[in-house]
Design a binder for these strands. Structure first.
Length: 941
RNA sequence: GCAGGGGUACCCGAGCGGUCAAAGGGGCAGGGCUUAGGACCCUGUGACGUAGGUCUUCGAGCGUUCAAAUCGCUCCCCCUGCACCA
């Protein structure tokens, strides 16, 4: 192994050891500006994958950058251990789930140890360790490891209890009934796409059927369930399935007729319900009459075999003017009933349902596919563009989309309807039972709907620093829409006991809103300087909101810390947090913390997906394991990949080949530094000044980008532009040791936040003794900018590419190349014209006159006027950069003359350079007349 | 349903009124370096062109403008989040 081999494994180990030994990560309160950054702590649900590292890495990059720009940085981390995941994991271990056991064995765990993971707290402990040791430390994160905490620790629980006391004091805890997915065997279950808790039905939505109480003559209730309560005005009859035996139930004081299936669902949703012995055949209801509530019209019950006993109440009201199913059924029934139109919609006449059926040529109730299509079409049209007409009484003229809830609410207030909730598709629990929706009568909520809280939060957002900008604009809407959130639950999971109701546990979103504040305390807990049971309500009142007095000296020490570090400057999290975590993070701070302690910034990043934009999921194959990837590609390569492959605000694909390319790039940089070491010292003023100048441009661009957290732009500048520049310098023949050294040092520092291990290694190679991680980021200095040399190199590149172009087109094998730089008068005119156009004083005649006062140009008047004429249009198209280039004073002839060796080298032939102003020019084809500023004429033999 | 984001050359992806035939990377082709290379360097990669040029392109169609990938409208198509999962 030669010294030039990039042995990243060795390098990583070496520098991590040093960082962690010297504890350079530890945040210390100093007289500097502080920066508090953290990521939304991960849930403890198993091993993480390469996707999770994206956000963590961004956080470390920003944190390292701040550390290098004169900030004292606090970058803590912890685990969100509350909730179902660790509990579920433990359960799986307990029942020896083969996938889980296999996975644990793959990670090298012994049977004895695996057994221990039946205990959820052991699960948390184990994975907490994995996250710290195998992920965060392996990636070189300068997390303050002295503050690591978990949400199921005693101290944290006391903190959460305090939070809920505060919410209660502010009247932000309320009680009301709630409807939640529930398994009669396992308790509450989460219905979501990941299907953690369930076997089937992850895509199910909860549908809210307005169940309207139609009354039979004897007062018995025939409940018709509908998603479109506003159509009640258009009801002409009822549909009852003749083949179904309905049951009767007593709900409060009412007798209801409904399907057996409906009964079994509704018992969980109403307070008082009793099944009666009496049953009734659908057939026996047909022909009877009932009354439409609200409008008190009498209608007939008809036979509707399509009325599905599994859907809602099993009984359907018929709106033939607006529901294709009802229309066709009515036609087929042969009854003499006129549809009632209640909605006016552009593009339809008096009976939209009939028109839609006709358009699709629907003839029978059995054509369900077409009927569904017709239903959807009409529903969409009517909902978005329809208005209720005169048949709807006081609602006439109102938009359908605005009225739905009003009709529903009126019916409910009049005790003429209830809401019945049901899944859009079947949901089956892990245990095999059907998941139902259950009413929880006295559910506690955090009142996020509170107007005052919402408004204050929205106002706070407007002063925050939020990336991306789009999210900042979205947030007020989200806060507005964010509703009360059920905050406690009873069931098998981990979390803090709710202080106001015994045996109930605070749910995991509600216990992770103010938590960055706890990082200030966790350090003292971890170091044994204060005990968990000392963290009383008085303690937190004093430390966090300055209420009361310090009962012990340590209280004021902690408070001092808190006052220095808080608020959070930047909270990073994935896009999944946009509508859940970030809103509650904000609103709880606004509710509880004083104004100066509310968060300053949020950074939302998108995900790493599998090929084909699929979410990486452990259950569905998953991506590479973090530790394997780290060995295969190297940590710095992965860090570079995350920060460069795409904008933080798009999903990126995990692309093994791309990561490999990044790895090679780092190896090249490593080699390049070695190669430069071996160069012979030589100087070239123009070129050397150019390198310094361009270096400072890069410094400026990088810093500007990093200040805005534009990680990708910064990374591009450092790892691609800088490399390109130094490559140009070397290819051009540059070799000034002093300047190269200076360039490299700056370059290495620039790289450090992104590829810290490589940077440390290179820094040492340059003979530096200190840690580059603790260096100061280079600062931009205008003095080092040399416009002249930048323009000179630009000219050279332009000439080179022009010559190449000519060679390519003409296919000439060049023997001699002649270059003619612009005559002085054209340069003067160019400058004058730019100046005058900018000042809006352009006068073509004056410029020509001025120019030909020069006796040498007297005979060239025609050429002069032609040139000026063309210039005008061209200059208007120029941008500021271009203009600046033309206005820069540079002796083109001299510059090119000095770069002759380079041209010589490139084109492998003799190069002759002339100024168009000089007399002895070899120019057989009179090409020099085409010479213009920064665009010399070329002639090739 | 509510809300958000997109469609750019072979692919990924930047650009978001003139600097745009459109950055950067990858792929592909040719050349170089090499014992070899899947490492690295150079060149090319819309079409046409024996002089640095011209022509046609940025989902589709209209429009605004001296000027549009970039702005407006309409349409088509994709993707994502949505609360008791974190």
């Amino acid at each position: 192994m030669t010294s030039q081999t990039y042995d990243y494994i060795k390098i990583e180990k070496k520098w991590q050891k040093k960082w962690y030994k010297e504890k350079i990560y530890e945040a210390k309160k100093q007289d500097k500006k502080k920066f508090f950054i953290h990521f939304a702590y991960p849930g403890v649900s198993g091993y993480l994958h390469v996707g999770h590292m994206r956000g963590f890495t961004y956080c470390d990059i920003i944190s390292r950058y701040k550390l290098m720009t004169d900030h004292e940085v606090l970058f803590p981390a912890g685990f969100h251990a509350s909730g179902i995941p660790s509990f579920g994991f433990a359960k799986k271990v307990e029942r020896k789930d083969p996938d889980i056991i296999k996975m644990l064995k793959e990670y090298g765990l012994k049977d004895d140890f695996i057994k221990k993971l039946k205990d959820p707290t052991k699960v948390v402990e184990y994975f907490g360790n994995v996250y710290v040791k195998d992920y965060w430390k392996k990636f070189g994160f300068l997390i303050d490891y002295s503050r690591i905490m978990s949400t199921i620790s005693e101290g944290y629980k006391n903190f959460i209890k305090w939070q809920f006391h505060k919410l209660n004091e502010k009247h932000l805890l309320i009680k009301k009934p709630h409807f939640a997915p529930y398994c009669s065997n396992c308790g509450p279950v989460a219905v979501d796409k990941s299907e953690t808790d369930i076997l089937k039905g992850g895509n199910a939505e909860i549908l809210e059927f307005t169940t309207i109480k139609f009354k039979l003559i004897d007062g018995t209730i025939l409940p018709a369930a509908t998603l479109r309560p506003e159509t009640i005005f258009g009801v002409t009859n009822m549909w009852v399935n003749p083949n179904v035996e309905y049951v009767k139930a007593k709900i409060n004081d009412e007798i209801w007729i409904l399907s057996k299936q409906a009964y079994e669902k509704i018992i969980f949703q109403v307070d008082s319900i009793k099944l009666l012995k009496e049953k009734i055949k659908g057939q026996d209801l047909i022909g009877k009459k009932c009354i439409i509530p609200l409008i008190n019209r009498e209608i007939k019950i008809l036979s509707g075999p399509f009325a599905d006993p599994n859907v809602a109440s099993g009984i359907v009201m018929s709106v033939p003017a607006h529901a294709p199913y009802d229309w066709i059924a009515l036609v087929e029934s042969g009854e003499d009933i006129d549809p009632i139109t209640i909605i006016d919609v552009k593009g339809y006449g008096t009976n939209p349902a009939k028109e839609a059926c006709d358009a699709l040529n629907i003839k029978s109730q059995t054509e369900t596919e077409k009927l569904d299509q017709a239903t959807e079409e009409i529903y969409k049209k009517e909902f978005h563009t329809g208005y209720l007409n005169e048949n709807t009484g006081k609602y006439a003229g109102i938009k359908v989309s605005d009225i739905k809830d009003e009709v529903k609410n009126e019916l409910i207030e009049n005790n003429q309807a209830i809401i019945m909730r049901e899944f859009s598709e079947e949901v089956i629990c892990r245990c095999g039972r059907k998941v139902i929706i259950k009413q929880i009568p006295d559910q506690w909520f955090i009142k996020y709907s509170d107007g005052n809280l919402t408004n204050k939060s929205k106002k706070h957002v407007s002063n925050m620093n939020i990336s991306p900008e789009d999210y900042k604009n979205e947030l007020p809407g989200i806060l507005e829409w964010f509703d009360d959130r059920a905050c406690i639950r009873k069931g098998s999971w981990l979390g803090t006991e709710f202080p106001f109701k015994k045996d109930w546990i605070i749910e995991p979103i509600s216990d992770s809103t103010l938590y960055p504040a706890y990082y200030i305390v966790s350090k003292y807990i971890n170091e044994g300087k204060i005990k968990p049971d000392e963290l009383t309500v008085e303690f937190f009142d004093y430390v966090f909101i300055g209420k009361g007095k310090a009962k012990k000296p340590i209280w004021s020490i902690i408070k001092n810390d808190f006052d220095y570090w808080y608020p959070v400057d930047l909270n990073l999290g994935g896009k999944e947090h946009k509508t859940v975590h970030f809103p509650v993070f904000l609103m709880n701070h606004v509710a509880i913390m004083p104004e100066e302690k509310r968060p300053k910034g949020i950074f939302v990043h998108w995900w790493v997906t599998q090929k084909g934009k699929e979410k990486i999921s452990k259950s569905k194959g998953g991506a590479e394991h973090i530790n394997e990837a780290a060995i295969k590609y190297g940590v710095d390569a992965m860090r570079l990949y995350y920060s460069h492959i795409g904008s933080p605000f798009v999903d990126i694909e995990w692309d093994v080949e791309a990561v490999t390319k990044y790895k090679n790039r780092l190896a090249n940089i490593y080699k390049l530094v070695y190669q430069i070491k071996e160069l012979k010292d030589k100087s070239n003023n123009n070129l050397d000044n150019w390198l310094i100048s361009i270096m400072h441009r890069s410094i400026k661009k990088t810093k500007d980008a990093l200040e805005n957290y534009d990680l990708r732009i910064a990374t591009n500048e450092i790892f691609f532009e800088c490399q390109k520049n130094i490559q140009w310098y070397l290819n051009r023949g540059g070799g000034n040791k002093k300047i190269l050294n200076n360039f490299l040092k700056n370059w290495i520092i620039l790289m450090t936040p992104i590829a810290p291990h490589l940077s440390e290694e290179l820094w040492m190679l340059k003979g530096m003794k200190n840690l580059v991680s603790l260096e100061n980021y280079p600062s931009f200095n205008q003095e080092f900018i040399s416009e002249k040399d930048e323009v000179g190199e630009y000219l050279l590149q332009k000439v080179t590419s022009d010559i190449s172009e000519i060679l390519k087109v003409t296919k000439i094998q060049p023997k001699k190349i002649f270059i003619y730089t612009s005559p002085e008068w054209k340069i003067n005119i160019m400058k004058k014209t730019i100046d005058q156009i900018d000042k809006n004083t352009f006068n073509i005649g004056m410029i020509i006159k001025d120019t030909i006062t020069d006796p040498k140009l007297k005979n060239n008047a025609k050429e002069v006027s032609q040139y000026v004429g063309k210039l005008q249009g061209e200059i208007k198209k120029l941008n500021e950069n271009d203009k600046k280039r033309y206005l820069t004073d540079i002796k083109e002839f001299t510059y090119l003359e000095q770069a002759k060796d380079y041209l010589n080298n490139i084109f492998k032939c003799e190069i002759m350079i002339y100024s168009s102003d000089s007399d002895n020019i070899y120019d057989p084809l009179n090409k020099n007349r085409f010479a213009a500023p920064l665009r010399p004429a070329i002639y090739i033999e």
